[in-house]
Each structure stands twice: as structure tokens, then as C-alpha cells.
């Protein structure tokens, strides 16, 4: 920042008493508001201290841990992958991770589409049904991907397919909710236009609602694909395929060079996918609003 002119400031400081008497409101202390802020912050701080005490966080542990973390970080450089065979198995796991995210997102979107319509208030105007379906979707959504992975492993066995199904299950609820919200936020006028031109219920959805919600939905699906690439990197921890398996093993055997290499692989993959998907999202939204 460049040095601002101090002329104004000098003039104001010289005349402070006059300013105070002419604008009492601007200088008054708002004790009530301050008490509220201080009270809120105090309560937050108390809870913070209580949490530190309850969770047994001590400075000794923190400092000791940070020291060890420093050692690990030193060992992480340079990142290495050992043999070429190892490298291939890592790359295969990386592609598998992307595959799990892609298929999981796609399946969830396809399955959730009809439920999104059913859960939208302006498509099925039935309060009790609406409430029930929303709660079911909420419940599916609040069970984490890792837990779903453990459940699906019982069904289809260890491996990436369980990961696909796990991502599908936890995203199904989220998509159902998002789709129905997109439908509810849609403008009613195009629908009325279709009705006034003699369109039936199917026409209403196809020409009145779909063109409005498709771009929104498509960009949300892409966004979830991005975030699922991150989720897919961890489900390997419970044995549901992807690069997480390797990551878990290498951390357990303290091979920090391999760990940093795997993390770099994940970072690279996520950045590439983010870039592609951001472009696609922009293209979809730009193209549709232009029409």
C-alpha cells in the first residue's frame, strides 16, 4: 500500500474536540452491543478451553507431536516410489480412484433424478409425502461414505466396486435434495406458458422445467464429481479400492517418501479434474443462459 496523504488526518486530529461535540453519535460507545459481542466471544472461549481440557490436549503433546511431524516432513523429501512396478501399481490405483468417483457420481445422479422430481413441492404437491421423502434422503446423506463402504464390502466383497456403490449411496441423498431444491426454485412462467399452449403434464416437465434445471443440476453433478475424487482417495482405507489402500499402508510402515509421492499424485489428479470440470461447468452454464 502506498503512503496515504496525512493532511486530512492532521486536520482531523487537530479538531478532534470539535468533531466529538458535533457528531456525538459516531463517537458514542455502544455498550449494549459490545456486551453482546463480548459475552458471545467469552462463551465461545470458555467452550474452547473446556474442550481442550476435556479432550486432554496438553502443550507437551502438541509440542512433541510437532517435533515428530517436522522429522516426518524432512523424511518426505524427496518424494520417491521405489521400483517401477510400484509406480505402475500406484498409477493404476490413481486411475481406479478417478473411476470410482466418476461411476459413483454418475450412478447417484441417475438414481436420484426421479426422486428429485418426487421430492419437489411444485411437482408432487403432497406435504406429508414430501416431508417423508426428504427425511429419507437426509438420513442417507448423513451416513458417511466410509460407513457405506463398510456396508457394501459385506455385500460385494473387498474392491473398488464397493467404493463405487458407497459413493453412490451417500451422494444419492445429497443429489435428491439438491435436484428437488433446483426444481422448487424454477420459474413458474415457462410452465404456465406450456400449459397455455395446451401442453400436458409431461410437456410441462420436459419443456417448462427441464431446460431451467438441467444446467444447474449438471454443474452440481460436476462439482460433486470433483469432491468425490477426494472422497475416493480415502475409501481405500477400509478396503474399498483406490489409492487410499496404498496411502494407508505407506503411512503405517512410515515410508514417508512414498506417502508424499502418493499425496502429490492425488493433488495432481484433483487439480486436473478441477480444471476440466470448471471449464465444463462454465461451458454448460454460459451456453444455456445464452439461449
Amino acid at each position: 500500500m502506498s503512503a496515504p496523504p496525512s493532511f486530512l488526518r492532521e486536520r482531523a486530529m487537530a479538531e478532534e474536540a470539535g468533531l466529538r461535540s458535533r457528531h456525538p453519535d459516531a463517537f458514542r460507545a455502544h455498550w449494549r452491543r459490545r456486551a453482546g459481542v463480548v459475552g458471545g466471544l467469552g462463551a465461545a472461549l470458555l467452550l474452547f478451553v473446556f474442550a481442550l481440557w476435556d479432550l486432554d490436549v496438553s502443550w507437551g503433546r502438541v509440542i512433541g507431536g510437532i517435533g515428530r511431524l517436522g522429522e516426518f516432513t524432512e523424511l518426505m523429501f524427496p518424494p520417491r516410489f521405489g521400483t517401477v512396478e510400484r509406480l505402475w501399481s500406484y498409477l493404476h490405483a490413481l486411475v481406479e480412484t478417478v473411476a470410482i468417483a466418476f461411476l459413483g457420481t454418475l450412478l447417484a445422479a441417475i438414481l436420484a433424478a426421479p426422486f428429485g422430481f418426487l421430492a419437489a413441492r411444485n411437482v408432487v404437491p403432497q406435504a406429508l409425502f414430501h416431508f417423508g421423502l426428504r427425511r429419507v434422503l437426509d438420513t442417507l446423506r448423513s451416513v458417511d461414505t466410509l460407513i457405506w463402504a463398510l456396508v457394501w464390502i459385506n455385500v460385494v466383497g473387498l474392491g473398488p466396486f464397493a467404493g463405487v456403490l458407497a459413493i453412490m449411496s451417500s451422494d444419492f441423498g445429497a443429489f435428491g435434495k439438491l435436484f428437488s431444491e433446483a426444481l422448487e426454485a424454477a420459474d413458474r412462467k415457462p410452465v404456465e406458458g406450456v400449459v397455455s399452449a395446451g401442453g400436458g403434464p409431461l410437456h410441462r416437465v420436459r419443456f417448462g422445467l427441464l431446460p431451467q434445471v438441467l444446467p444447474v443440476v449438471a454443474s452440481q453433478v460436476l462439482y460433486f464429481f470433483e469432491s468425490n475424487t477426494r472422497s475416493a482417495t480415502i475409501i481405500g482405507i477400509v478396503g474399498a479400492g483406490g489409492i487410499g489402500q496404498h496411502l494407508y499402508e505407506q503411512i503405517k510402515i512410515l515410508e514417508w517418501g512414498h506417502v508424499s509421492f502418493l499425496v502429490l499424485l492425488v493433488l495432481a489428479a484433483v487439480f486436473v479434474i478441477d480444471a476440466i470440470s470448471a471449464r465444463l461447468r462454465f461451458a454448460i452454464i454460459g451456453q444455456r443462459t445464452g439461449v
Partner: peptide, 26 residues
């Protein structure tokens, strides 16, 4: 980097560094 690496991966590393318990999770 902080938001791309999943929190569970951080937790795995921190469990080794700080020991089992709530601290690595936090």
C-alpha cells in the same frame, strides 16, 4: 493443498505423530 488432502489422511499422519486420541482429529 490444505483442502485437497482429505482430512482422514491428515488424521492418519497426525495419529502417528501425536499418538492416539482426539488431538490428531482436531
Amino acid at each position: 493443498v490444505c483442502r485437497t488432502v482429505p482430512e482422514i489422511v491428515f488424521a492418519l499422519v497426525f495419529v502417528v505423530a501425536f499418538g492416539l486420541g482426539a488431538l490428531p482429529g482436531v
